[in-house]
Design a protein around this nucleic acid. Structure first.
Length: 427
RNA sequence: GGAGGAGUGGCCGAGCGGUCGAAGGCGCUUGACUCGAAAUCAAGUGAGGGACUUUGUUCCUCCGUGGGUUCAAAUCCCACCUCCUCCGCCA
């Protein structure tokens, strides 16, 4: 959520942002609501001041034994008018807030302006793309042949885009989770969290999934709870409605959770394989920090995600998303993309974003400056650290051998109790 | 799920329908005392929004949440939420 006072003073900047993001939003309507709200507020507050004064007068007059009926009647009329105005204000506030909840965040000035992923800017590459002496197979072929990915039974148990992991596939998934959590807690200073996988509407609204993107979420209607699409939601909301001490900033949280996404707009995209699932595992990183530190925190958090791939020795690149490709709440986003030999291109495996105070406003998460003064909004960041399923894909494809077996990256071998290879070599 | 009890400021805890944004205590901040600390004493110490002669004064709102009664609600009524105790069920 943006600051309405800032929007009021900078409507043209907001309009330009909407063009850059290829979004539409009724800026004038919003400003109209705000003007009306403030006008009504001034009127009702004056009436309330009068009512409070007159009521006290009635109390005193009664003690003195005066006749107060006429006074009462006058105040009754004021109260009735106040009630009408309060209702009107509440209606305007609801309407205004609904609109405010649907404006995307202002991108940072360093973000490339463009319509879509074509305008994204590559920042750096790491590792060498493997060259195979044979035609590398896609992960779904490798996984099925090795008996570690079962797509048919996933569909049987649930529906399409659900997959069963078996044997060393499940073990590898779990090894990746443990490896990443150990890295972030042991080397990067994150506190490990196990949050609820279902959250309420308020929490979903705090990070920006609601009200706009409900179609992408699974919902438990009977209990009015939603399955989390990412651990960003519960982790960022840990401090919702709190005033933190400046000296306690920053907070670093990491969590493994399953993530649930309806993929409503993705029909026909990545239909084969494990890349795009309704349920997938992810280790997430969240930072809650001082406003002046959020951009350096974005750089260091991206480095934390990169470290995972460096230790696994999987080639990747980092891109800075353009205004048209960036998420709703972000001011700046780095995507990390891993090399997938079967597709001969880089595919997203992590997304690290600074949201500045956009989510903090929605959640009402503030800190008290040490120098004194009013509480101020914190900045929040989130990043995949990293997507487990896609990481498993990257390992299967990049570490495949000609005989269809897959070698295990050195760093994971202890996590697999010494297993160095999935599938026995045939030659 | 059934039966009871409770929700007040950072914490504990008072609060006859009007002078209560809320006693008292703890904690915290500042000052005095001290070589320094402790103790003691004094003062201050919630949040949000608005106005103005914009660092000070003033107004409005907030006592779990939302309604209602009333000239006036922390205080009365209703619903909901959360927590605690006991019983039942359960990984």
């Amino acid at each position: 959520m943006l600051d309405i006072r800032w929007v009021r003073d900078n409507p043209d900047a907001v309009r330009q942002m909407l063009v850059n993001r290829k979004a539409t939003f009724p800026v004038d309507e919003l400003i109209g609501f705000d003007e009306r709200r403030r006008r009504l507020l001034a009127e009702v507050e004056e009436l309330k001041a009068r009512r409070n004064q007159e009521s006290k007068r009635i109390g005193r007059a009664q003690i003195d034994g005066e006749d107060v009926e006429a006074l009462k009647e006058a105040v009754r009329r004021i109260s009735s008018r106040i009630k009408d105005l309060d209702q009107e204000i509440s209606d305007v506030e609801v309407a205004q807030r609904d609109l405010m909840m649907s404006i995307p965040n202002m991108p940072h000035e360093s973000v490339p302006i463009g319509d879509d992923e074509e305008a994204n800017v590559e920042i750096r590459r790491w590792g060498t793309v493997p060259s195979f002496s044979f035609e590398p197979k896609p992960h779904w072929e490798l996984g099925e042949k090795l008996g570690i990915l079962d797509f048919e039974r996933g569909v049987k148990l649930a529906e399409s885009r659900f997959t069963v992991l078996l044997g060393l596939g499940a073990r590898l998934e779990r090894a990746l989770i443990n490896f990443m959590l150990d890295l972030h807690t042991g080397e990067h200073g994150f506190k490990e969290v196990i949050p609820p996988f279902l959250v309420n509407t308020r929490t979903m609204t705090g990070t920006g999934q609601l009200p706009k993107f409900g179609e992408d979420l699974y919902r438990c209607v009977a209990d009015d709870l939603w399955l989390i699409p990412t651990a960003e939601v519960p982790l960022t909301n840990l401090h919702a409605e709190e005033i933190l001490e400046e000296k306690d900033l920053p907070f670093y949280y990491t969590a493994y959770t399953a993530c649930f996404r309806r993929e409503a707009g993705a029909h026909g995209r990545d239909v084969r394989g494990f890349l795009r699932q309704h349920q997938f595992d992810k280790v997430e990183m969240v930072k809650i920090c001082h406003p002046q530190k959020s951009y350096e925190e974005l750089e260091s958090m991206t480095a934390c995600a990169e470290k995972v791939l460096q230790l696994l020795e999987v080639p990747y690149r980092v891109v800075c998303l353009s205004t048209g490709d960036m998420g709703f709440g972000a001011t700046k986003t780095y995507d990390i993309e891993v090399w997938l030999p079967s597709q001969h291109k880089y595919r997203e495996i992590s997304s690290c974003s600074n949201c500045e105070d956009f989510q903090a406003r929605r959640m009402n998460t503030r800190y008290r400056p040490e120098s004194g003064g009013k509480p101020r909004f914190v900045h929040t960041l989130n990043g995949s650290g990293i997507a487990i399923g896609r990481c498993l894909i990257a390992i299967l494809e990049n570490f495949q051998n000609e005989d269809g077996s897959v070698s295990i990256p050195d760093v994971l071998i202890p996590y697999l109790r010494g297993v160095t290879r999935i599938g026995t070599p045939q030659s």
